[in-house]
């Protein structure tokens, strides 16, 4: 233990550090000088490390104008979604609307509809092409006693497993409560796809980046509803603002008995369900 701590001890050398820039020139000088150089570099290096770390860490909360300019202030909204499964007729309009609105690639879905056919003898679940072309009649091996549709999509969780695992900060949650993917930063590692318990994410085969429902962020920031809500013919889907007291969606969430998907995972989904059956996961 006599040699290793040595360089550290030498940092206590009394010389003041301002000559540090001259460092590079000196190579085979006397050991004392080198001790000093080591010390100077330690200090300089430490400072650089600190500075480099700070500029990213210091979230400039002081006063940065919100993104989106004057037209839309993300601090004045907090979006939420309510799905009343008892109203869904499984037409798949939402899936088609989403695809048309967002150029969703074939074979993938940002929103989809599941069908549950349940009886004492068993249960059957399907979602052909995510419900894009509706549902066919199916024979079941058991006698069904109830059957229903469940629309699904990104839950825009408050405690997002997907944002948590993104290594480069390409996934993030906005102040108005929407989970987004920055397609220019995404490295396409697929970790978020693995981490989402709801299967809401996929890797776009064309762009090789992660993609998901954005609650139609390009629409809601212009005062429009998400496309799926816009085209839903039965009022199954509703989108609203938790910052507005009279908002019907907020009223429902505040006063009705709502459920969320996979509550035990504590992801705090912001899609709330009415009349959800226990078969649904």
């Amino acid at each position: 233990m006599d040699h290793a701590p040595r360089p550290l001890a030498s940092t206590r050398s009394p010389s003041p550090p301002p000559e540090a820039p001259a460092a590079g020139a000196a190579t085979p000088a006397d050991p004392g000088r080198r001790d000093f150089l080591g010390a100077a570099f330690t200090i300089a290096g430490g400072a650089v490390v600190l500075l480099a770390g700070l500029d990213a860490a210091a979230s400039g909360e002081t006063h940065v104008p919100p993104p989106g300019g004057d037209a839309y202030n993300w601090e004045e909204h907090r979006w939420a979604y309510v799905i009343d499964t008892s109203k869904c007729i499984g037409c798949g309009s939402c899936v088609r609307g989403c695809k048309a609105e967002n150029d969703v690639p074939d074979g993938f879905v940002r929103t989809w509809v599941e069908r549950y056919i349940v009886g004492p003898g068993g249960s059957y679940v399907d979602s052909p092409k995510g419900g894009l072309d509706g549902f066919p009649p199916v024979p079941t091996a058991f006698t069904p006693t109830k059957s229903f549709f469940v629309p699904k999509m990104c839950n825009h969780c408050k405690e997002t497993p997907c944002v948590q695992v993104c290594p480069v900060g390409a996934s993030y949650r906005t102040k108005d409560g929407v989970v987004l993917v920055d397609g220019k930063s995404c490295i396409g590692c697929g970790y978020c796809v693995q981490a989402c318990p709801y299967g809401s994410r996929f890797l776009n085969p064309a762009t090789h980046t992660a993609e998901k429902c954005t609650w139609c962020y390009h629409r809601i920031t212009k005062g429009l509803k998400p496309a799926c809500v816009e085209v839903c013919p039965t009022g199954t889907r509703a989108f609203g603002d938790m910052m507005r007291e009279d908002d019907p969606v907020r009223q429902t969430i505040d006063h009705e008995r709502v459920s969320i998907l996979q509550a035990h995972l504590l992801t705090e989904p912001q899609c709330f369900y009415l009349h959800l059956d226990m078969e649904v996961r």
């Binding site: 993938f108 879905v109 059957y124 679940v125 399907d126 979602s127 709801y198 299967g199 994410r201």
Partner: peptide, 8 residues
């Protein structure tokens, strides 16, 4: 039944 995005 697999989630539609879960098949890759």
């Amino acid at each position: 039944y697999a989630f539609p995005n879960d098949i890759h």
